[in-house]
C-alpha cells in the first residue's frame, strides 16, 4: 500500500500561545478508512485546518498524492483533500444545494458542462438529486449532511476528511450516514467522538490527545484497551462491548 496522505511532525501554536499540535505524524494509504479519535481540545479541528493550510503550521509537512502543502500548492491540496466541516450551516453557504455543490468545481475553473456533470454526479452519489434546487435551510439534518458531503465530492478529492459527520443526527440518521460513507470508495479520514461509528467504518484508528498522536492501530484493539481509553478520555456507550461485535 502506498501512502496517499502523509503528515510529518506537524506543529502549530495559536497566536495566544496555546499549543494545539506538538509534532503530529501519521499516514493514510489509498483506499483506507481511518478514524481520528480524541477528547475535546485534543487538537483534532486544528489538525484538520492545518491539513489544507487554513491554519499554517509552524513546522512539519503535509503531503497528499506527492504534492507538498505550501502556499503555492494550496489550491491543488485543497482539491485533493476534501474537508467536510462539522456544522452543515457553515458548509452550505450558497442559496441552493445545486449552487453549493457546484461551488468547488466552479472555483477549479472547469468549463460549465464539466461543472454541471460533476455536480450531478456528486448529488447522485449521496442521493440528493431531488433536492438540488432547495435552499440549504430547508433540509433535514441528515439531508444537510449528505449535501455537505456532496459539496466536497464534486471536487473529486483524493481524501475525504469528515469532522464529526454524525453529530446532531438521530440514531436513524446516524445509521443512514454510516451506510452512505460505506458506499463511497474515496479514502476517508473521519474525525469523531462516535466510537461505535469508528468501529463500524474504520479498521484503523488514530488517537490524538494533547496535540500528539497517543495511539495508532486497529480500532477494535484500541477500543478494547481500557487503560488507553481512560488515559485519553475515550468512553464507549453504556453496555457496548467491542469484543462482541465484529469489527473490521
Amino acid at each position: 500500500m502506498t501512502a496517499l496522505l502523509e503528515v510529518e511532525d506537524l506543529a502549530y501554536t495559536y497566536p495566544d500561545g496555546t499549543r494545539a499540535l506538538m509534532g503530529v505524524s501519521f499516514s493514510v494509504a489509498e483506499g483506507e478508512r481511518v478514524a481520528l479519535l480524541g477528547p475535546n481540545g485534543a487538537g483534532k479541528t486544528t489538525l484538520l485546518l492545518a491539513l489544507i493550510g487554513i491554519v499554517e503550521a509552524q513546522s512539519g509537512e503535509v503531503r497528499v498524492g506527492g504534492v507538498t502543502l505550501e502556499p503555492e500548492t494550496y489550491p491543488e491540496v485543497r482539491r485533493r483533500i476534501g474537508v467536510v466541516f462539522q456544522d452543515p450551516d457553515d458548509q452550505l453557504f450558497m442559496p441552493t444545494v445545486w449552487r453549493d455543490v457546484a461551488f468547488g468545481p466552479a472555483n477549479l475553473g472547469l468549463p460549465a458542462e464539466e461543472v454541471e456533470s460533476r455536480t450531478k454526479e456528486a448529488l447522485a452519489a449521496v442521493g440528493m438529486e431531488e433536492q438540488a434546487d432547495r435552499a440549504p435551510h430547508h433540509l433535514s439534518g441528515g439531508e444537510a449532511r449528505r449535501a455537505a458531503i456532496a459539496t466536497v465530492l464534486s471536487m473529486r478529492p483524493d481524501v475525504l476528511v469528515l469532522d464529526e459527520p454524525t453529530s446532531n443526527l438521530d440514531p436513524v440518521g446516524q445509521r443512514e450516514l454510516a451506510e452512505l460513507l460505506e458506499t463511497l470508495d474515496t479514502t476517508q479520514l473521519i474525525v469523531t467522538h462516535d466510537l461505535p461509528l469508528a468501529l463500524r467504518l474504520c479498521p484503523r484508528s488514530i488517537v490524538l490527545n494533547g496535540g500528539r498522536v497517543a495511539a495508532d492501530g486497529p480500532t477494535a484493539e484500541l477500543l478494547s484497551d481500557a487503560a488507553l481509553m481512560a488515559a485519553n478520555r475515550l468512553e464507549l456507550p453504556y453496555g457496548f462491548d467491542p469484543g462482541t461485535i465484529a469489527g473490521r
Partner: peptide, 19 residues
Amino acid sequence: RIHQAMLARGYRGTIPPAA
C-alpha cells in the same frame, strides 16, 4: 467558519455566479 469552508473548496476571492 464559513470563510474556512469556502477556502477549503478553492475560494479565491470571487463567488461563482449562478448559471
